[in-house]
């Protein structure tokens, strides 16, 4: 697993992918947090990081599929999948290696945004007047959310040899998981809460209040795990 992880991470870092992803994420979030009047913290007047945590997931809906779209699709198209699958690597170690490499790249993009936290912390009046627990919870939420997005991205990539199909499928599925269930719950009447709880948004909001609820953690981990299991099944399906 560690070998696949290293290889994938190296291929991100040796190509433009990593730098474009990190650059685009930080630029877009930075512009929205500090420059654009509508969403700027400076205009808003309250020392919080809602801009990052409410818009970040939408940026991820596009960025994470962009990272993952090639992971299996390209390998299958180039034939290198055959190479990988005839090496002494289990199917799980290939899937997890790729998954963790993608997740690591997303974390690399998130880490510099801690500077925003520091800036707002200092700008607060008095300095330090920010809901640090809420920010920490939101960061944990964002990490869990990207865990699910990465899994969705890999799953979509494993289904096709076409990167564009993989990208669109992953972006769509991520969107459905993020807000789809929430929107659907409005129509559901009695089962509204249940359907709401199936979506990411419900658990994401719960984490961003600064309370790390074990139910939410279990939700994120099991959804990601289930989708990864699906990915592994698709990879193993050559043996059927």
């Amino acid at each position: 697993m560690i070998q696949v992880f290293k290889k994938e991470l190296n291929s991100f870092l040796n190509s433009l992918i990593a730098y474009v992803v990190i650059g685009v994420f930080l630029t877009s979030i930075g512009l929205m947090m500090w420059v654009f009047n509508d969403t700027s913290v400076l205009e808003y007047g309250f020392a919080d990081m809602d801009t990052l945590f409410s818009l970040g997931p939408y940026v991820f809906i596009f960025l994470v599929p962009a990272i993952t779209m090639k992971s299996f699709a390209e390998e299958k198209k180039m034939g290198t999948m055959e190479l990988l699958l005839t090496k002494p690597l289990s199917d799980w170690s290939i899937v997890l290696g790729k998954f963790l490499a993608t997740f690591a790249l997303v974390l690399f993009a998130l880490i510099p945004s801690l500077i925003y936290y520091y800036s707002i912390y200092k700008l607060g009046s008095p300095a330090g007047n920010i809901d640090s627990a809420g920010v920490a919870g939101s960061y944990v939420g964002l990490m869990f959310l990207s865990l699910v997005f990465c899994a969705i991205g890999l799953f979509s990539s494993s289904l096709t040899t076409n990167q564009i199909v993989s990208f669109i499928m992953a972006a769509f599925l991520s969107f459905i998981f993020y807000t789809g269930f929430d929107s659907l719950s409005v129509l559901a009447g009695n089962a509204a809460l249940l359907i709401k709880q199936l979506g990411i948004l419900y658990h994401y909001e719960s984490l961003s209040r600064g309370v790390i609820d074990s139910r939410s953690v279990i939700y994120f981990v099991s959804v990601a795990g289930l989708i990864l299991f699906g990915t592994k099944t698709v990879i193993s399906s050559r043996q059927w």
Binding site: K7, S11, N14, S15, M78, G79, T80, E82, L83, T86, K87, P88
Partner: peptide, 18 residues
């Protein structure tokens, strides 16, 4: 176990070009 002792060159020789 078998994969460990086998060397394989697939048809069309796929490689990681980058």
């Amino acid at each position: 176990k078998v994969r460990k002792v086998t060397g394989y060159l697939p048809e069309h020789n796929p490689l990681y070009l980058d």
